[in-house]
């Protein structure tokens, strides 16, 4: 079957993937072919959120899609969230401050997901618990919006506090 040579835009950099088998998922392309190992492979079937990255500002599971489908799109991973001078993104800072992790495996996905979630929330997107107008970002509203990210260590208390602090900024 024909191989493909194409470019991915990741964190503002152009990455050329040469002679790639079309079977390579976006996650495997990011990790194994671009050397950006922040996004994690937890389940490889859409069930955990560890592979979450942002595409054109929206959060997606990079494990359930082909790299080829994302040619030319604006992809952002956990490696691309900090400022050029190394200062952390507000969500990264808040996760450190509130112990939003134990082993850290789910953390890149949690943080990328939270970045996407706050953008959705601020744009007025509803959730399954939203009744009419979009409600305050706390309790069930926050849990529902972050339900796509599992934490095997159960660091949810710190994760919630971190996101709420970053949301208030």
């Amino acid at each position: 079957m024909p191989l493909h040579t194409f470019q991915l835009q990741i964190n503002g950099d152009t990455r050329t993937l040469s002679n790639l088998d079309p079977r390579v998922s976006l996650l495997d392309a990011i990790r194994d072919h671009c050397g950006l190992t922040g996004a994690k492979k937890g389940c490889n079937q859409g069930a955990c959120g560890a592979c979450t990255v942002l595409v054109d500002g929206e959060r997606i599971n990079s494990c359930l899609t082909l790299a080829l489908q994302y040619e030319g799109r604006d992809i952002r991973t956990i490696e691309g969230l900090a400022e050029a001078d190394g200062s952390l993104h507000p969500l990264q800072k808040a996760f450190v401050e509130h112990d939003g992790f134990q082993c850290g495996f789910c953390t890149p996905g949690q943080i990328c997901s939270a970045v996407g979630m706050l953008a959705e929330y601020k744009a007025g997107a509803p959730s399954a618990v939203t009744d009419g107008e979009v409600g305050e970002l706390a309790g069930a509203e926050l849990q529902e919006r972050m339900s796509g990210n599992l934490c095997r260590c159960g660091a949810y208390v710190g994760i919630r506090e971190a996101i709420l602090e970053a949301a208030a900024q």
Binding site: G46, G49, R59, N61, L64, T65, E120, S147, N149
Partner: peptide
């Protein structure tokens, strides 16, 4: 249905 990430895809 599903999760926010999946609904975005």
């Amino acid at each position: 249905g599903a999760s926010a990430q999946l609904r975005n895809m």
